[in-house]
Computed example of a mutant assay.
Amino acid sequence: MKEFNIKKPDDKIIPQLQDKINNLTKPLGSLGKLEDLALQVGWIQNTLSPSLRSPHHLVFAADHGVAVENISLSPQEITYQMLLNFLSGGAGVNFLARQHGFELYVVDAGINYDLSFTNPSLIQHKISKQTKNYLYESAMTSQEMDEAISFGAECAKMCFDKGSNILALGEMGITNTSSSALWMHLLTGVPLKECIGAGSDHTGNILDHKFDVLSRAIENYAGDGSALSVMQYFGGYEMVMTVGAMLEAAQNKMVILVDGFIMTNCMLMASKINPNVLHYAIYGHEGNETGHRTVLKALNACPILNLGFRLGEGTGALCAYPIVDSAVRMINEMSSFKTVEVTKYF
């Protein structure tokens, strides 16, 4: 598998950043989460004057062979239909990307549909039309996993080369909440029941059947329990590409905006490959999918928003971006007690 050289940001700048934040013209700590975010972005960028440049958003899409087990009320064709919707500009991710100035790319990592057209926002790298059914066999081969990791990394590097230093990530793939639940269970030890949510089924009627299928899949799993084995056996191409993109973004010292349940589990997986990736992660929101709060807790993550989202696509990450922007503006644009005639107050 591709190797990543991810370094922890230099702690030496933290006291200087904290001093600058503490001496802005406000009571100590009074801007709360903005102060934490400003410190993190300045630490990542190793500067007292951080900036956000050319924000990019990648949506990886792929289908899952396990969909034949009817563990989602949404039919598999929704994956390619929504990909077409992304490319036509009519989805939730589109209006948010436009609103917040993100350049959006959609990646066909393995949808079960032939795309016979080109689009400036479309990146085609179909590894296969879908993964295999992990109820009975590994979702992908080790070679396919390596290819997905590498291509996801290439996509993140493309964004970096276009001048971006902040990357949001999203996904589309019917049944990928199930893969995420399996990753979460096997990597954290949280009971499977607590990892499984209804996905797109807001009524929750699918839960018992979903639990049965995923439990049998674990019983049939013959891997060694390592992160790479779990990723290969239960992952989707879109999820594995996301892991590669996260690792590459961190290697290039980009801020990574993490979305909901699926993307948070991709960050969990990335952290098992290289723990230093966590330093570059900002968690956009806590979604309504069962287990998201638990996996956030396992990562010691404090999300910015809680808006009742359960859409995916990266929408929660995009909604959180203005808060990160406000944090950067705070540290750069507020006056300091040292430079203006305001008595320091508490």
Rank of each mutant, 00 (worst) to 15 (best):
V240G: 02
V240T: 07
V240W: 00
M241T: 07
M241D: 06
M241W: 10
M241P: 04
T242P: 03
T242Q: 04
T242I: 12
T242Y: 01
V243F: 06
V243R: 00
V243M: 05
G244P: 07
G244S: 11
A245G: 15
A245T: 15
M246P: 04
M246N: 02
L247R: 03
L247H: 07
E248V: 09
E248Q: 15
A250Q: 11
A250S: 11
A250R: 08
A250K: 08
A250M: 07
A250I: 14
A250D: 06
Q251G: 11
Q251M: 09
Q251W: 11
N252D: 12
N252S: 13
K253R: 15
K253S: 15
K253E: 15
K253G: 08
M254Q: 13
M254P: 10
M254D: 09
V255F: 14
V255E: 10
V255C: 11
V255G: 11
I256Y: 03
L257K: 12
V258R: 04
V258I: 15
V258Q: 02
V258A: 10
D259P: 13
D259W: 12
D259C: 12
G260K: 08
F261K: 02
F261S: 10
F261H: 08
I262N: 00
I262L: 08
M263F: 03
M263R: 03
M263D: 05
M263L: 14
T264W: 05
T264L: 09
T264S: 14
N265F: 08
N265H: 07
N265E: 10
N265D: 09
C266P: 02
C266W: 02
C266Y: 02
M267V: 14
M267T: 12
L268Q: 03
L268P: 05
M269Y: 00
M269L: 13
A270M: 01
A270F: 01
A270Q: 01
A270R: 00
K272G: 03
K272Y: 11
K272S: 06
K272P: 06
K272E: 09
I273G: 03
I273C: 05
N274P: 12
P275T: 13
P275C: 05
P275F: 03
P275A: 11
P275V: 14
N276G: 06
N276K: 08
N276P: 06
N276Y: 12
V277W: 01
V277G: 00
V277I: 14
V277M: 03
L278M: 10
L278C: 09
L278Q: 07
